[in-house]
């Protein structure tokens, strides 16, 4: 069982590594996040005060998460663009094993990308941000990527999953925030508490609470997507 799990994970990692779109997304994210941080630092409206400079850096995460979302979507949905899923389930008929292997392979890829992106972000910053928010940013990126992965596993299509995730992060959650304080409990809003250092953010949740809440959202979505993956026809 154990070696089979390793094999499945290794196979999924090879699939991810050899997808040009995945490599392109990772590359664009690793260049884009620090690049954007540099631009935002140059644009910081006030002469770089302590919090303004760190905020500008972390603002790059807001857009950098696009890369991690895309990564999650591609990891789950590319199987369905052709006939690959049939080959996959034929070679690994044990679906729970397959689901676990896929999830772990994606987790590893996303973790690597998130760590490198946030590391690059810290590297270009004028001031070294403290360790806590950096760790929070990595955790946030990892979780948002997992959420995108589960959404794509459910929709089975790249475009649909992208619209759902980007619509949530960039359209629905900012608009809902203006309407009700409950929006603070949405996965992305809760999770961003982990890295927000600015004063402009609501204090409904602490960083720890936000992180746990987002992790719960993701765990719930992942459980649902896994059950569907196991039960639904490929």
């Amino acid at each position: 069982m154990n070696s089979r799990f390793t094999d499945v994970t290794a196979a999924e990692l090879i699939k991810l590594r050899t997808l040009p779109a995945v490599a392109g997304t990772i590359g664009a994210t690793l260049l884009g996040v620090p690049g954007l941080a540099l631009v935002l630092q140059a644009a910081a409206p006030e002469p770089a005060g302590a919090s303004a400079a760190t905020d500008a850096g972390f603002q790059a995460i807001e857009y950098g998460q696009v890369g991690l979302i895309l990564l999650g979507v591609l990891a789950a949905a590319t199987e369905y663009s052709g006939r690959q899923i049939h080959t996959t389930v034929k070679s690994v008929p044990h679906r729970p094993l397959l689901a676990a292997g896929k999830a772990v392979a994606h987790l590893v890829t996303a973790a690597m990308t998130a760590v490198l992106a946030v590391g690059a972000l810290a590297g270009v910053g004028e001031r070294r941000p403290s360790f806590g928010p950096l760790l929070g940013a990595v955790a946030y990126l990892l979780l948002i990527s997992m959420l995108a992965y589960t959404v794509a596993l459910l929709t089975r299509g790249v475009l649909a999953a992208l619209v759902v995730m980007l619509g949530l992060v960039f359209v629905a959650s900012p608009l809902l925030t203006r309407v009700t304080a409950m929006a603070g409990y949405l996965p992305d809003r809760a999770g961003r508490q982990m890295y927000q250092t600015g004063s402009s953010y609501d204090t409904t949740l602490t960083a720890g609470q936000g992180g746990v809440l987002m992790a719960l959202w993701v765990a719930l979505a992942l459980a649902l997507a896994t059950v569907m993956f196991i039960r639904r026809d490929a």
Partner: peptide, 21 residues
């Protein structure tokens, strides 16, 4: 559709990249 969709939707947000530029 991946690239146009991603860039354009990400840029419709209230604080868009263009606004920051």
């Amino acid at each position: 559709g991946i690239i146009p969709l991603t860039l354009l939707i990400a840029n419709t947000s209230l604080v868009s990249v263009s606004l920051l530029l």
